[in-house]
């Protein structure tokens, strides 16, 4: 039952993030939305990768091999990587947002329609 709420939370987070990416017009808010989306994906991945009642994947410590359920560390390693990547992405995108604001005096993507030849 607890897993059900985890799935529900992650799907709600993903949906909320996606909706905000699609409907928000502010460059910074889109970055925040992206972070919400990534949090949802991370939570979903961790939940799907966990086996309730599983042991650590060390063979010498396993009680018996029959019906053994192990929690491999790979999904958690992947999610750690994704958190770090998400950090890099956020930093880079905020830099771009600041520079865009400096050049165009606006944060609103409606005023930034298309890149024009500006030489």
């Amino acid at each position: 039952m607890s897993n059900f709420f985890l799935y529900l939370t992650s799907i709600l987070l993903i949906m909320a993030g996606l909706a905000a990416i699609l409907y928000k017009r502010n460059l910074i808010k889109i970055v925040i939305a992206l972070n919400i989306l990534e949090a949802g994906v991370n939570l979903l991945f961790i939940t799907l990768g966990y086996r309730p009642g599983g042991t650590a994947p060390i063979f010498t410590m396993a009680p018996e091999l029959e019906g053994l359920s192990m929690v491999l560390p790979t999904p958690q390693a992947l999610i750690l990587t994704n958190i770090v990547i998400g950090f890099a992405t956020t930093a880079l995108m905020l830099t771009f947002a600041v520079l865009t604001h400096r050049h165009n005096d606006t944060m609103d993507i409606r005023n930034l329609r298309g890149v024009e030849s500006n030489d």
Partner: peptide
């Protein structure tokens, strides 16, 4: 320093981040 360069990078990074998620 160009006017729209950071915005192009922002767009590309946004698309990439959503795609990889």
């Amino acid at each position: 320093n160009r006017k729209f360069s950071p915005y192009a990078g922002y767009k590309y990074m946004m698309i990439s981040a959503v795609a990889t998620s």
